[in-house]
Write a protein that binds this DNA or RNA. Sequence first.
RNA 1: GCCGAGGUCGCUUAGCCUGGUAUAGCGCGGGCCUGGAAAGCCCGUGGGAGCAAUCCCUCGCGAGUUCAAAUCUCGCCCUCGGCGCCA
Length: 422
Amino acid sequence: MLEMKVFRESPEKIFEDLEKRNLPKDIALTVIELDNKWRKLIEEGNNLRAKRNSISKNIGELKKKGQDFSGVLKEMAILKKQLNQNETDTEIALKLRDSKRMVVPNILVNEVPVGDDENGNAEISTYGTINRKKEWLSHQDILERINGADLKRASKIAGRRFYFLTGDLARLELALVNFAVETLCEKGYSLTTPPFLMNREAYEGVVDLSDFEEVMYKIDEHDLYLIATSEHPITARFKNEIIELKEGPLKYAGISTNFRKEVGAHGISDRGIWRVHQFTKVEQVIFCKPEDSEKMHEEILNNAIHIFERLEIPFRVIDICTGDIGTVAARKYDIEAWMPSTNKWKEVVSASNCKSYQSVRLNMRYRTNEGTNFPHTLNSTAVATTRALAAILENHQTEDGDVIIPKALRKWMGNQETIKSK
RNA sequence: GCCGAGGUCGCUUAGCCUGGUAUAGCGCGGGCCUGGAAAGCCCGUGGGAGCAAUCCCUCGCGAGUUCAAAUCUCGCCCUCGGCGCCA
């Protein structure tokens, strides 16, 4: 949600942004109009309350002197009725304003490339070398050869898009997690394992409303949602609080199992463990002052780049365009790993600078010399295990169907160098 | 799950019994003082509306009683301690 001062003081910034996104100006104009209504009501209410308080004080004094005050009681009754009405109206006006405000997307950073969909995304850089000649097995074929997963029986007990990871591959998953955690801890990130369930109110502070239908699983009888990423609980953690940023940005390495409904997603590219309902992810989450957020955005991206370089996977970094970026981020970089079996780049990391969009909704602030201000929030994948595993399997396969374990992970695999096919 | 105690401004805390402007300390910011600093002293330190004077809101959340609620009543949430159950 955008700060109200932007609507009031520089609405042209919002209008320009909506134009870039091909969205109607009206959604912002409505907010401004509703805000004026609300402000008028607040002023009326304040005047009524001021009157009530002064009469009430007066009664107290009369009573102390033992004088009669029954005359003003009638006036008080009328006042009370007016105030009741005003309070109802004000509450409705504010709710309406903010429900419209929720829909207005974040203001994009100038550099964001303009485009209608993912075809408009801009490639920034590529890492590693691509070998297009060899015959490459798909990750799902390799899974079968190395006995790395049991998808069939997982679907028997839980449904499709679930999996058992087995043997060396299950071990490799833990190695990936350990590697990512160690990398981030060395850089000063504080490891955090959050609750895996969150209530609706907290969840509304960190996601789009549409995500409740399309992404998160709900536990009906408890008003709880399974988290889709540790970014959600970790960002919502300081809801309604004033945090301290004097000693620099707060940096967290989150680790959690993530649950996603993945409604509407299907296709041949989703076979195997690429798109699943449950996966483990190590995430980076940062809270910082506005002036630091662009630098922090580069930092979390570089951390992810570093991790994928050490996994020895070819990948590229792309700058997500206006039509593909969504409502929350002001700028978003993705890392796409090269998947040789299909000759395609596929998303393994997403790094977003959300500016103050989330902290406004969460009412989270930090203290400055002049008062309080909304911090910027950033998040990025460090490693999402299933996708990273798929990329490792494809890129590190050998002629005879074995998989070479990236050197960086071997210390968590008892120095094992390969995963043998059967 | 049961019993008990509690939840007050960034933190700590007084006020609650007996309803009438939310107290003090710490931390933080500014000022005085100083060659500079510490100490000391003074001011400020949650949110909203307003150009401003000013006004309003805020004591876990929500209802109720009352002219008036941090304070009284009811419901809920959470924390701590004890008991029970349990990986």
